[in-house]
Simulated scan of single mutants.
Amino acid sequence: MSDFRRNSAGYLANHMARLFAVGLSRRIQPLGLAPAQFMVLLELWEEDGRMQADLVAALDVEQATMANTLARMERDGLIERRASETDRRSRLIYLTDTARQVRAEAVAAAQAQNAVALGRFTEEEKTQFLDMMRWVIGNMRRE
């Protein structure tokens, strides 16, 4: 591995994210989920009935990417769109019973992937690593 790749935060983060996504995908695919759908579900499990723009901002993805993900999720019976009671022009995204029923298994699958990824860390190292990841994300959001 070249010095640049070995010392590039971007290269290493991207490589780690791709490997994590492959592992997560393998674990949640039997539930009928893809990693991008899982990220949306995490947001909706936390707060159901959100606007698409809120999900775009929360997940730092492009509007078109979110629109495609939500269309697949609607097709797969994971979400439904309903008119807002306060603004009829707005449509809110709600979980279906199917999405609620896979929550425990999906979260357990993600926890298993996290355990593999962080398996050799001590508890203190895990805390430090996750803190540093959050700091980097915060730095990138402020740019």
Results as ranks from 00 to 15, higher is better:
residue 91 R to K: 10
residue 91 R to Y: 15
residue 92 L to S: 01
residue 92 L to M: 07
residue 92 L to Y: 05
residue 92 L to Q: 00
residue 92 L to R: 04
residue 93 I to G: 05
residue 93 I to Q: 02
residue 93 I to P: 00
residue 93 I to K: 04
residue 93 I to S: 02
residue 94 Y to V: 09
residue 95 L to P: 00
residue 95 L to C: 06
residue 95 L to D: 07
residue 95 L to H: 06
residue 96 T to R: 10
residue 96 T to I: 02
residue 96 T to N: 06
residue 96 T to Q: 10
residue 96 T to G: 05
residue 97 D to V: 07
residue 97 D to Q: 07
residue 97 D to I: 13
residue 98 T to D: 12
residue 98 T to S: 06
residue 99 A to I: 13
residue 100 R to Q: 06
residue 100 R to H: 11
residue 100 R to P: 00
residue 100 R to G: 03
residue 101 Q to C: 13
residue 101 Q to T: 09
residue 101 Q to M: 09
residue 101 Q to L: 12
residue 102 V to I: 11
residue 102 V to M: 04
residue 103 R to F: 02
residue 103 R to D: 00
residue 103 R to K: 08
residue 104 A to H: 12
residue 106 A to D: 13
residue 106 A to W: 15
residue 106 A to F: 06
residue 106 A to C: 09
residue 107 V to D: 08
residue 107 V to G: 01
residue 107 V to M: 08
residue 107 V to W: 06
residue 108 A to Y: 07
residue 108 A to K: 04
residue 108 A to T: 04
residue 108 A to L: 14
residue 109 A to M: 14
residue 109 A to D: 05
residue 109 A to P: 09
residue 110 A to D: 09
residue 110 A to S: 01
residue 110 A to P: 14
residue 110 A to Q: 08
residue 110 A to I: 06
residue 111 Q to K: 10
residue 111 Q to T: 10
residue 113 Q to R: 04
residue 113 Q to M: 07
residue 113 Q to I: 06
residue 113 Q to V: 14
residue 114 N to G: 15
residue 114 N to A: 13
residue 114 N to W: 14
residue 115 A to V: 00
residue 116 V to I: 11
residue 117 A to H: 03
residue 118 L to C: 12
residue 119 G to K: 11
residue 120 R to M: 14
residue 120 R to I: 03
residue 120 R to A: 07
residue 120 R to S: 12
residue 120 R to H: 05
residue 120 R to V: 05
residue 120 R to P: 07
residue 121 F to V: 11
residue 122 T to E: 08
residue 122 T to C: 09
residue 123 E to Y: 00
residue 124 E to P: 02
residue 124 E to S: 04
residue 125 E to W: 00
residue 125 E to A: 02
residue 126 K to V: 11
residue 127 T to E: 07
residue 127 T to A: 02
residue 127 T to G: 01
residue 127 T to W: 12
residue 128 Q to V: 13
residue 128 Q to D: 15
residue 128 Q to C: 05
residue 128 Q to M: 10
residue 128 Q to G: 04
residue 129 F to H: 12
residue 129 F to P: 01
residue 129 F to C: 03
residue 129 F to M: 11
residue 130 L to P: 09
residue 131 D to T: 15
residue 131 D to M: 12
residue 132 M to Y: 06
residue 132 M to C: 13
residue 132 M to I: 05
residue 132 M to E: 07
residue 132 M to Q: 08
residue 132 M to D: 04
residue 133 M to N: 15
residue 133 M to L: 07
residue 134 R to A: 07
residue 134 R to T: 08
residue 134 R to I: 11
residue 134 R to M: 07
residue 135 W to E: 10
residue 136 V to A: 09
residue 136 V to I: 08
